[in-house]
Design a protein around this nucleic acid. Structure first.
Lengths: 238, 238
DNA sequence: CCAAAAGTGTTATGCTTACACCCATGC
DNA sequence: GCATGGGTGTAAGCATAACACTTTTGG
């Protein structure tokens, strides 16, 4: 129906108007006992100086997931993240320049990896940094709304799947895991019930190592292979 | 970044390549004790003669939801449907002609409305008809995959929200409701437990009317206002 | 020895499941 | 009166929720 023609090296001609399509990524991690996400500061108009979700245009030959991973790699050099599509936002005037439809992605980065990133440290050299989910700057475009949606999804994921560990280092204590849950869900949880529930799902195993710290040492755990993508949404009509 | 220019009444010129963006709608309804969905037969290449999801291009000034509703109205004349975004599919070669990214929508039509539609009856005049979810023709593009995804979502919706009634007429018996659940979930359910569960959620109320039929008459129910969008996904950490 | 975090069980309650028979009507 | 679908209750097992104290280490 719509034909495409390459009329010159610089331009693309179509019979019908086409929107631009971007991907935006909400990259969450856990650091300093807080839920963080990556934002980049806009250098040009519109919304100059405001903070925005990392993202960019989808290339002609690339899948949406691939585009999200590529943008993420360009911004952070990390490639080993959990990624899933979140929602597509397409109000006609969400970008004042031209029609832009954005496919939002939701990504989880382990604390291991986010700690090694130089994003945070050279924050004057770079235009990207981590922000606390609970202390955000003003956001560009409709990114505040996208972020709210992502937070909802993250909360749902934690409650119904075992993906909380993706925000933590490879080995972690149960207290650290509980802290992740409490921070994301934004409410305190009962320690005994939390531990029992986690151990009942049998996605955890002891590594045999212990964390030595200020006080009583704690057992370290890792997640078993089956933990990821165990979308164990329980049946309601069994 | 990407600039748009209208070079002639017939063409659109952009500095960067842009994909075409469509919406495709999976319109479910319940009819003849079976789960149905609307498909349209393709008149041209590619996939000529194959069946496809209704849908079309997103117009430059229109929201994605609006585009889905418009396409649906063009195809069926119905406007009062439950609609939600499903997923965005964007593999580079999912359409052999040009890059097409499609935002899939998931829609539920009441049996009332689908019965009044002339889609089914004039199936030789029209190119659209209802198909049983469990007896489908060959589908064009990647629509079989999209449909599988939609069915998953529908099952999840039935299990965790009270949206089953959106497939039924305004008044219905509990047996009819159970039949919807059994058909969608594709398994038999216990009658007493089903009724108790439904009545416990208190989204149902008796209309006072009864359905007279072949045998013992049945009480008719409607759903209360709070039933819709009661996304009562229960908390796991209360 | 004190501060701080790790770790651990029990009970009461409510929900879920499995299961079988009587009821009201039309023919 | 019989065939057909409508309608109902209970008991056992399971999961959940609420709740407080002891243990281990470092300083």
């Amino acid at each position: 129906m719509t034909a495409k023609d390459r009329s010159s090296p610089e331009t693309y001609v179509y019979e019908h108007p086409r929107p631009a399509v971007t991907v935006d990524i909400i990259l969450f991690t856990f650091h300093n006992a807080d839920l963080k996400l990556l934002l980049v500061q806009r250098k040009g108009e519109p919304f100059q100086g405001k903070w925005a979700l990392p993202g960019g245009f989808v290339q002609p030959d690339e899948d949406l997931d691939t585009a999200a991973l590529r943008e993420l790699a360009e911004e952070t050099n990390v490639s080993d993240v959990y990624l899933e599509q979140l929602y597509t936002f397409g109000e006609p005037d969400r970008d004042p320049r031209t029609r832009v439809i954005t496919v939002a992605y939701f990504a989880l980065l382990s604390a291991d990896q986010s700690a090694q990133l130089n994003v945070q440290s050279n924050s004057d050299a770079s235009d990207a940094r981590w922000w606390s989910m609970y202390d955000l700057p003003e956001l560009a475009f409709d990114h505040a709304r996208i972020l709210q949606y992502a937070l909802q999804r993250l909360r749902w994921k934690l409650e119904w799947t075992a993906l909380g560990f993706l925000l933590l280092p490879a080995e972690f204590t149960l207290s650290e895991l509980q802290k992740v849950y409490e921070t994301v869900l934004n409410e305190p949880l009962d320690k005994r019930n939390f531990r029992r529930k986690m151990q009942a799902t049998d996605v955890l195993e002891e590594t045999g190592n212990i964390r030595e710290g200020d006080h009583r040492p704690a057992k370290l755990y890792r997640f078993t292979a089956k933990a990821i993508e165990l979308e164990q949404v329980r049946r309601r009509f069994p």
